[in-house]
Design a protein around this nucleic acid. Structure first.
Length: 290
DNA sequence: AATGCGGGGCT
DNA sequence: AGCCCAGCATT
């Protein structure tokens, strides 16, 4: 295994000088406010920082404290999340806020955070290290990429990444170390065109030495994208239109235009449209003037 | 271990 | 036109 000791120090030095200034980073890593840190971490699950910033400001304005969030109606929480995607995050955050509010205190350990809905290994490690200084290494897309490159490990499996992240962790400054690694992955050790000449870990990086940083980690073969087709009906105009509560998993429970799935081919599309027209008693398609 | 879940940015 | 993003829950 790579000798991480010199890399740890250089990473923290770089972070002190070049780390990102983000609105939820108030106070020292290790004693951050649990609610704000929690909201930011959930928002940033599979969501880029620029977008997370917008929704963070909106969400904190609507729900300034965990008690405010717990007391809010579910619709209001979803409304604040509107357009951000992965809506289970909002529903789980709301449920978990009610659990925390009822308990009267935030979790104070990795295990405690992990027990809340919507919080998995990554988020629990981030929260435990950032709010309580617990020595837990985060393992996310940035960490996987940075460590695969530093160690020259093309086939970085989840188990390998976790072991490497644990070995790299700075037990004296786990929160700062985790944030530093994420910032490095986001701003220097990027997926496509890494800025190796600005990287504090360049000396000692196996991928840089090999001259092909983007070859690490090797991309995983992706499953073929499944295509789905549907016909939607607009009754109304840009000001007001008929909406339905969607069923199923895709945006289920949210409002949307009336839709009908299309199985295959033109005939099926015509049939789907007719189904929608019949549903609203709009008669033959020709009556729409087409 | 695989899959579904949103929406947008980057190359 | 892919690939990726501070992942998680479910199967």
């Amino acid at each position: 295994m790579t000798d991480f000791a010199p890399l740890r120090a250089r990473l923290l030095e770089w972070f002190a000088a070049q780390g990102r200034d983000l609105p939820w980073r108030v106070g020292a890593p290790g004693q951050r406010d649990p609610y704000r840190t929690w909201v930011s971490e959930v928002l940033l699950q599979q969501t880029q920082v620029a977008r997370g910033r917008e929704y963070y400001a909106r969400f904190l304005a609507a729900f300034p404290s965990v008690d405010d969030l717990a007391a809010a109606p579910g619709d209001a929480v979803l409304k604040a999340w509107e357009g951000c995607g992965y809506y289970a995050r909002a529903r789980n955050l709301h449920r978990a806020a009610q659990m925390v509010s009822a308990a009267g205190a935030f979790p104070d350990s990795y295990a405690g955070w992990l027990a809340l809905p919507g919080i998995g290994p990554y988020t629990a490690a981030a929260l435990a290290s950032l709010t309580a200084g617990e020595a837990r290494a985060v393992n996310d897309g940035n960490v996987r990429r940075v460590l695969a490159r530093v160690c020259g490990e093309r086939g970085a499996t989840p188990a390998w990444v976790q072991a490497a992240a644990d070995a790299f962790l700075n037990p004296q400054h786990p929160g700062a170390h985790n944030e530093a690694l994420m910032d490095l992955g986001a701003t220097i050790c990027t997926p496509r065109t890494p800025r190796c000449l600005e990287c504090p870990l360049r000396t000692g990086c196996a991928a840089y030495a090999a001259g092909q940083p983007t070859a690490y980690p090797a991309p995983k073969p992706r499953a073929a994208v499944k295509e789905q087709r549907a016909v939607a009906l607009l009754i109304g105009n840009a000001e007001a239109a008929v909406l339905e509560t969607r069923s199923g998993k895709l945006l289920g429970g949210l409002a949307g235009l009336p839709t009908c799935d299309v199985t295959a081919g033109q005939a099926s599309a015509e049939a789907a449209l007719q189904t929608l027209l019949d549903r609203y008693g709009l008669g033959a398609r020709s009556r729409l003037g087409r």
